[in-house]
Design a protein around this nucleic acid. Structure first.
Lengths: 194, 194
DNA sequence: ATAATAACCAACCGCTCGGTATGTTGCAAG
DNA sequence: CTTGCAACATACCGAGCGGTTGGTTATTAT
């Protein structure tokens, strides 16, 4: 990797962390510059504006991260148990920053979806992809599931509840409420089976 | 009501709307001043800082609004049906601003819970009160409900899912996803009964 | 050897922000 | 009649923001 590419990747990594911690609007370019130990010229050489930097973070950091994180538990033989295991292990391995800062995708959705069309469409696409992962997984074992289930509806329900659960952990500053919601969510998911 | 009190109430109403639309940090005092047609001196006569204004909006506008909105559907003879009716009518009566701007409580939770302790504690208290309303309602008809239900857990689950649903409607800019999640939530709620 | 370009750096700009200090007005009590 | 305070208005401040401009350096092609 060339030096220039290293610089770019470093900016993306640091920016992703800052945006996760403080949101997009409250993220200061000068803080990113300080952490990367570069000048403003360097940043504006690689990105044309703060907005483009935000889009790049979304596409090159958040998107692959999310697809990867969800792909694994849904790819196993029994995605229902895969999902539940995944959710339960989330509550255990959840770092302090995740308890406090929430999910990057959900954060950006709350903050930016209604003020910037570029972010909105990227977020929407990501949500649809996640939902499709769930739908595909459920399709795979549809024989073991209850009749009359609307898979897409179920997928969005799961994603929505998970987002709401992270939101609750923000205000309580601990995992308890999150764990409770996840526990109830697992009950719901397991009840999808016949 | 004295003139001074009218001014104060007007500030609170306008600020509540601005905060709902743009979030707390992105809400500009000068915009509030313009909409209220008052000077900065007037605002700082009634409130000592932007933060105190935010707290006042939360306590004097949002809190009573939320308690009132939730109290009605949970107070009926069958709160399970009351809740479902309430949720379904929400999806119908949902105004454009609510689709786009989301729930004020959830917005503030996402934006402020991890950066300001004052907001965090107020939000947490509000969430606990809402949860208690649900728990009380379920207690009332516990004989008709399944055994081994953790009412508090169920309450937070419902609140979390609802929040996640509003989040989804932000990125899709229409009610469809919201309606789907709510429909699935109603299925879950009705399944609480024996 | 020189010219060109990629990859930066430092200084600065206009703007908006929350907040403050001081000035003004109307009414009510003495 | 005037004194005093509640209820504002006006003007200003420093800080931080995203973004721009004009260099500078190292590498590469000719």
């Amino acid at each position: 990797m060339s030096d220039a590419e290293k610089t770019r990747q470093n900016i993306l990594t640091v920016a992703a962390d800052e945006i996760h911690q403080h949101g997009f609007k409250a993220t200061s370019l000068s803080v990113i510059l300080n952490r990367c130990e570069i000048s403003k010229g360097a940043l504006y050489y690689h990105f044309t504006s703060k907005m483009e930097l935000g889009y790049a973070v979304f596409e090159e950091v958040y998107t692959p991260m999310f697809l990867n994180v969800w792909h694994t538990p849904l790819g196993v033989d029994d995605p229902v148990e895969g999902l539940c295991d995944f959710l339960m292990s989330m509550t255990e391995q959840m770092s302090c920053s995740e308890v406090v800062c929430g999910c990057p995708l959900n954060n950006l959705c709350e903050e930016m979806a209604n003020v910037d069309e570029g972010f909105r469409l990227r977020i929407l696409s990501m949500q649809e992809q996640l939902n499709q992962l769930i739908v595909d997984a459920l399709d795979k074992i549809s024989d073991d599931l209850r009749e009359n289930l609307a898979f897409s509806q179920v997928g969005y329900f799961i994603v929505a509840t998970l987002n709401g659960a992270t939101s609750l952990s923000k205000s309580s500053r601990n995992k308890t409420l999150f764990q409770q919601v996840i526990a109830e969510l697992c009950l719901y998911i397991r009840a999808l089976k016949k």
